[in-house]
């Protein structure tokens, strides 16, 4: 019961901040709103008893969004949002597409007929251990691929962003 309460509460917080991301005029506020939306999603992970993932989400997203805030201020024409300006296009189409996609996903959630599992979840320490074994044994190749992808992205990003002599 208390779990439902927490999931609903953090879910509402996540949705509220996600809504604020695209409705506020100030860039800093919208970056911070995204940050708190992600933090609320991390708190939902905690409420869903995935402790390691929840704490990881709370940590990673906060650092990502702090960096994002920095870049937004660097590259925005009007970061403070002191003068009202239009930064959207094809608004009607976007709303229509988003509503249709959202309704489809909600419908799938409501009428999916999920076969709920009955077994209990392992304790947090056991979960972290099992996750580590999964990474290092069965899914090692997947994890290695993720690592190599990170390396490739690092090199590509540096090559993109480096200042070339004119």
């Amino acid at each position: 019961m208390i779990q439902v309460l927490f999931v609903v509460l953090f879910g509402a917080v996540a949705i509220w901040f996600a809504y604020k991301v695209f409705t506020t005029a100030s860039m800093m506020r919208s970056a911070l709103a995204l940050l708190f939306s992600m933090t609320a999603v991390g708190a939902m992970f905690l409420a869903l008893q995935a402790e390691f993932l929840g704490v990881l989400q709370i940590m990673m997203m906060a650092s990502e969004m702090v960096v994002m805030a920095l870049f937004m201020i660097m590259y925005m024409m009007n970061p403070g949002g002191l003068a009202a300006m239009e930064m959207t296009h094809q608004k009607r189409l976007s709303i229509a597409v988003a509503v249709v996609a959202g309704l489809l996903a909600v419908g799938a959630a409501l009428f999916g007929g999920w076969p709920l599992a009955t077994e209990a979840v392992a304790a947090p320490a056991g979960q972290t251990r099992e996750l580590g074994l999964e990474i290092m044994e069965r899914s090692m190749l997947v994890f290695e691929t993720a690592g190599v992808t990170i390396l490739v992205a690092m090199i590509a990003t540096t090559a993109l962003a480096i200042r070339r002599p004119a």
């Binding site: 439902v4 999931v7 609903v8 879910g11 996540a14 949705i15 996600a18 809504y19 991301v21 695209f22 919208s30 970056a31 995204l34 939306s37 999603v41 939902m44 869903l48 994002m68 870049f71 937004m72 590259y75 925005m76 930064m87 959207t88 296009h89 094809q90 608004k91 189409l93 976007s94 709303i95 597409v97 988003a98 509503v99 996609a101 959202g102 996903a105 909600v106 799938a108 959630a109 409501l110 999916g112 999920w114 709920l116």
Partner: peptide, 30 residues
Amino acid sequence: LVVSLIVAAVLFAIGLYGALSQTNLVMIMM
């Protein structure tokens, strides 16, 4: 489960709206 899926669906819809409607690259990434 259903509550979480609905929250996820709403987050996805808001994100989709943002990615389609924003004109700034950083906002699209958000």
